[in-house]
Amino acid sequence: MSHHLIQLLLPLFDNEGQPCPRSDYRRVRAELSQRFGGLTAFTRAPAEGFWEEKSETARDDIVVFEVMTSELDPAWWAAYRRRLEACFRQDSIVVRAQETRLL
């Protein structure tokens, strides 16, 4: 039986460089745990995201939240991503899904 691993790459700072409130992460953790029965949060050592923007390299410190589900609802995830972008004051937040098989 295949499952989907969904990863949310959440920023530690908004577009103005201000730290995102811890309450935002707690709310996301609670929402996803309730909907999917749990989650994994990689928060101890922030990951670094790099991308090219206007011929220079931009970077962001991020934390990663993951959930697994047997059913993938792209419309729900697209709407949830837009909510996260508004909450975390971002132009774009990466939410990606990967089909996976439990061994």
Rank of each mutant, 00 (worst) to 15 (best):
D60M: 04
L12E: 13
P74V: 10
R101D: 10
I93Y: 00
G38H: 00
A41P: 03
Q98A: 10
V63G: 05
G37M: 08
D61S: 13
A58Y: 03
V63N: 06
P21C: 05
S2Q: 11
T57V: 15
K54V: 09
S23C: 08
T100M: 11
P11S: 05
L12C: 09
L5E: 07
P19Q: 09
D24C: 14
L5Q: 11
D24I: 01
P11R: 02
F65V: 14
F50E: 08
L12G: 09
K54H: 15
E85Q: 10
V95F: 02
S2R: 07
E71R: 08
S33T: 15
W51A: 01
W77I: 03
P46L: 02
V28E: 00
R81K: 15
T69M: 05
G38K: 01
C87N: 12
Q18W: 06
W76G: 09
Y80A: 08
P46G: 03
R81Q: 15
W76Q: 11
Q7M: 01
Y25I: 13
E31I: 11
R22V: 08
R35E: 09
T43M: 06
L32T: 03
R35Q: 14
R81D: 10
T69I: 07
L10K: 01
A78D: 15
E53G: 05
T40N: 11
Y25A: 11
F65P: 03
M1I: 14
T57C: 07
R22W: 12
D91Y: 04
Y80L: 09
Q7Y: 02
E16L: 14
D73Q: 07
Y80F: 15
R35P: 05
